[in-house]
Design a protein around this nucleic acid. Structure first.
Length: 918
RNA sequence: GCUCGGAUGGUGGAAUGGUAGACACGCAAGACUUAAAAUCUUGUGACCAUUACGGUUGUGCGGGUUCAAGUCCCGCUCCGAGUACCA
């Protein structure tokens, strides 16, 4: 019987489904293990071979852990809200829910063919009201919470209201948008509306006027991680800065915890580094500067307080509130012209074109250390959004200040002994201070500390830690997202009652903004709550994906996001697999969201994802044909230099090992019907390049096609064999035959070279046992270390050895089958039954490794002289070091290299090396 | 600019500091076949030899530590990723 993978795979997939083999329940008797994939956005294009890479890896690990006796939670679902479905709806009028459903069905069909062990009973979709009810619920809780900096924890807002009533803002240390102060009596005398407005300054989910990234082409605002280099990540449209009243989440309050938490989780260093940079903690001081001949003072932030004696000018951000106050009448015209010019520059221009610009305000500030007067300038190299939007400029020791000083001819003072600032500033924090009054002679590090202390003691400012991490803008002017559980009473936002959740997404007849410029929900009829208008924005993509892992634990619970007892069992994700592209988005937001839920006591773990692995991207390997200019003749790769040719992308599915299938090509496009070819060795060889896998490059490989041609088991093994999981690599099918051949070889062990079934009940030989146990050791070790490519190699070696031994012994094959089950579950299941077992292979135990079988009677030592390997000698395994040394030196081959000399030293590494130093 | 990775045959890639290139692809030769495909066997870093079960060299470049370095340290080059006027 031959290896008929299609039949086998269908048979077992049906069996697993019918018998709910992968359905999982809490089981106190077993240790839990939670393996999660980043759930996909179901796009219209369907899956390509790159998508399943991570899913295959996580599936192998899940199945392995199950064999190791763990109760494994391995769910899957869909991140179903998103822009593409909405844009498609705008173009075609087709409701996003309809296209989303269609795409999900397609995804499911494709996923099922690969033989994953997902528990589909736990499937979730972010667009499902039963699911987003809990997204809205979390939002309400955030609205009703503030962040206490002393406790480092979210607390109920009602507590804060009580404090305001009794003591105002006195002695409060809480996270806020801006520092405001009032007394209890001031608070108590404020009207309700004003009190509500003040509370927004403290709520974790708050509505405020903020500078947002507005993308006119998409008609919506975007979060910082959705913008890159002034363009929207999705679509690549220009983004501008705009002041708008928007919902935000006070992620910044959690900055320190998000930073500290990184030390407790097992993520790659590079990913942690990316998050650290994104959070961007910097320690420094806020210092107050008085404006000369005025009562005004303003605050700057600096990490280099030690350079205070080198300040030769001050710079305000153009948007700074101090700008109008410090601008003198004489300079007003110049300043206005400058501000106007800045406003007209787009964010992109500002980033791409870094020329030095600025204007003098006419005012001077007073250096609090030495009383010198320093001019105050305005420049767009100072950002309004970071620190206080104002800096003290030290051109000698900051490259940006240096460029500015050079351009406007401002003085530059060197502060560190021996530094050369004739060409550029000296930015390094090292050296001995000079020109710095009481700091002279100190090292930079000492000076930083001493200055900070001085600033505090003399009340010139305070020590301050700043973070780059911004609050997350949470409103999107779109239709296809979660509605806010928010309504407005005369402009004041309130959240709905929790028992009225979910607030379901209403139907609209148009997905575009309204004529008044409102978001699409403005078209909805009766979009009200108790007679009050509901919020018209929807939530961003990251809302639904921030706590989804918790919902998988208890997906059907109507009373809670997750039952505390259930959460106590499954806890957090032990292994999370997904792409790096979420490093500063999803992986920050879900950590924040989880920490918030942790503060509320909803989850028992502070971090959502214990271990995280980033699978690499699978790129496309595009093929090209070369058309001779102005003709319909195509020339093979090797001969193209002789002609003037245009490379044209050709569908990779009609090219095999870079050889074009000419007949299929002629029918691929009517234009090529009459094409002619210049061949080499009778074949047309195509050129190739590695590019992103994309429809437009004709390099998309559909996993269905691979499954059809080779089977799911081959696809699984091959994707793993391609290289380390974390690497990005092009999809290249040229090696797939080798992996397929391995499965057939294994098949032939059972089926006597493709004929009838033959399994021997005989006891295995020592050699066979050795081969098997070598594999057990290797596979166990490799899976634990996510080195799946080398374990596939180990299988190949083992099967080669067993075939050479013609081993068809049941005892050996039985263990081999279990070992293979995580990688090639269908073929394993088939063998498991052929071997006479009634249960499924995934309920078995991973075989125990027995060292005994690997023991050798002889060990081979390499003898080297001065580190150079020369020959080998076999010794009995139990030979002692001295014995080995003596025999090696006496060996006849040694004489040639010893040349009669006495060795200075001999190093014997047990079972490996004898190095003789002459 | 800064941060983090990486560089090994024709290709993808293996190597707890222990004497490179596992495994696979590709290629070459052979067996089977009328033939091809499939399958199997053998060889395959480079260079020099070929009487050899031989020699030299070899993991981006230059140094160093070590009995021993692809692996550790210092200094470069190139490539990739992230981030970017964050004071």
């Amino acid at each position: 019987m031959a290896y008929n993978f299609s039949e086998i795979e269908k048979k077992w997939q049906d069996h697993w489904k019918k018998n709910n083999i992968y359905r999982i329940k809490e089981d106190q008797g077993k240790p839990k293990f939670y393996v999660l994939d980043m759930f996909p956005y179901p796009s219209g294009a369907g899956l390509h071979v790159g998508h399943p890479l991570g899913y295959i890896a996580s599936d192998i690990y899940s199945r392995y852990k199950r064999l190791k006796g763990f109760n494994v939670l391995h769910p899957m679902g869909y991140d179903a809200y998103g822009l593409p479905a909405e844009q498609y709806a705008i173009q075609t009028g087709q409701h996003p829910a309809v296209t989303t459903q269609k795409n999900i069905d397609r995804y499911r069909e494709q996923l099922d063919k690969i033989g994953f062990s997902f528990d589909w009973d736990r499937e979730i979709r972010t667009c499902d009201p039963d699911y987003y009810k809990w997204t809205q619920w979390a939002f309400i809780r955030m609205f009703n919470s503030y962040y206490c900096n002393d406790e480092q924890k979210a607390r109920p807002i009602d507590e804060l209201i009580d404090v305001f009533r009794q003591q105002g803002t006195k002695d409060l240390n809480i996270a806020c948008s801006e520092e405001i102060h009032f007394t209890a009596s001031e608070w108590n005398s404020k009207p309700e509306k004003e009190q509500q407005e003040i509370l927004l300054n403290y709520r974790i989910a708050y509505l405020a006027d903020t500078m947002v990234n507005w993308c006119p082409a998409l008609g919506t605002v975007l979060a910082n991680d959705e913008v890159s280099e002034g363009l929207s990540v999705r679509g690549g449209y220009p983004v501008e800065q705009k002041r708008m009243r928007q919902w935000s989440l006070r992620v910044s309050a959690y900055a320190q915890r998000l930073l500290d938490g990184l030390d407790t989780i097992d993520w790659t260093e590079s990913l942690k580094e990316t998050q650290k940079n994104w959070i961007g903690r910097s320690e420094g001081a806020e210092m107050k500067f008085k404006v000369k001949d005025s009562d005004l003072e303003f605050t700057i932030f600096t990490t280099r307080a030690d350079t205070i004696f080198g300040v030769t000018f001050m710079v305000l951000a153009p948007e700074s509130e101090y700008v109008p106050q410090v601008t003198t009448t004489a300079q007003k015209a110049a300043v206005d012209t400058y501000l106007d010019a800045v406003k007209r520059r787009t964010e992109r221009e500002r980033i791409s074109d870094r020329k030095v610009t600025g204007v003098f305000t006419g005012s001077c500030a007073v250096n609090p250390f030495n009383g010198e007067s320093i001019p105050i300038w305005i420049s767009d190299y100072v950002l309004a959004g970071y620190g206080t939007g104002a800096i003290m400029a030290v051109p000698g020791h900051d490259s940006r200040d240096y460029a500015f000083a050079k351009h406007f001819n401002l003085p530059i003072i060197p502060l560190i002994e021996g530094c050369d600032i004739s060409e550029e500033s000296f930015d390094a924090k090292e050296g001995i201070m000079m020109n710095s009054g009481f700091l002279n002679g100190l090292t930079v590090k000492e000076a930083i500390e001493k200055t900070k202390k001085y600033v505090e003691e003399n009340e010139l400012g305070k020590i301050k830690v700043n973070y780059r991490l911004r609050d997350a803008i949470f409103s999107r002017q779109r239709y296809w997202g979660e509605p806010f559980p928010v309504y407005y009473k005369e402009g004041t936002p309130s959240v709905t009652d929790e028992k009225d959740l979910p607030i379901e997404l209403p139907d609209v007849d148009k997905f575009l903004p309204t004529e008044k410029g409102e978001p699409p929900l403005g078209h909805a009829k009766n979009w009200t709550y108790n007679g009050y208008p509901l919020e018209l924005c929807t939530m961003p993509g990251f809302a639904g994906s921030s706590a989804y892992y918790l919902r998988y634990e208890d997906p059907k619970n109507k009373e809670a996001l997750v039952d505390p007892k259930v959460n106590e069992y499954w806890r957090n994700v032990d292994l999370y697999i997904g792409g790096t592209e979420h490093a500063t988005g999803h992986l920050i937001y879900s950590r924040f969201w989880n920490k918030f839920l942790f503060d509320l006591g909803i989850t028992c773990e502070d971090e959502p994802f214990k271990k995280l692995i980033n699978q690499g991207m699978i790129q496309g390997r595009s093929n090209f044909v070369y058309r001779i200019k102005d003709s319909n003749t195509f020339v093979s790769l090797g001969l193209k230099e002789k002609y003037d040719v245009t490379p044209i992308h050709v569908d990779v599915n009609i090219v095999h090992n870079d050889v074009l299938d000419i007949e299929v090509f002629k029918n691929w496009n009517p234009e090529y019907k009459t094409a002619e070819f210049i061949l080499e060795d009778g074949r047309y060889i195509c050129g190739w390049a590695v590019e992103k896998m994309s429809k437009s490059y004709y390099n998309v490989v559909n996993p269905d096609d691979i499954v059809k041609k080779y089977g799911a088991d081959t696809l699984r093994l091959y994707e793993m064999f391609l290289g380390p999981l974390e690497y990005s690599k092009p999809w290249d099918t040229s090696g797939i035959d080798g992996v397929h051949r391995f499965l057939r070889k294994l098949w032939n062990l059972f089926y006597n070279n493709g004929e009838e079934l033959q399994i021997s009940e005989e006891q295995p030989t020592r050699e066979e046992l050795k081969s098997l146990h070598k594999l057990i050791k290797k596979v166990g070790y490799d899976i634990e270390n996510f080195s799946f490519n080398t374990s596939v190699s180990a299988f190949m070696i083992c099967v080669n050895e067993l075939s050479a031994l013609k081993c068809n012994k049941k005892v050996i094959l039985s263990d081999l089958t279990i070992l293979l089950a995580p990688f090639a579950p269908h073929v394993s299941e088939e063998f498991w039954h052929v071997l006479g077992n009634k249960n499924t292979v995934c309920d078995e135990k991973f075989p125990n490794f027995i060292e005994e079988y690997l023991k050798e009677s002889n060990v081979t030592y390499t003898v080297s002289f001065n580190g150079k390997a020369r020959f080998t000698i076999d010794f009995p395994a139990d030979a002692s070091g001295e014995e080995v040394e003596k025999t090696a030196l006496a060996h006849e081959s040694s004489q040639k290299w010893l040349e009669g000399k006495t060795p200075k030293k001999v190093i014997v590494v047990p079972k490996k090396i004898i190095n003789i130093v002459l």
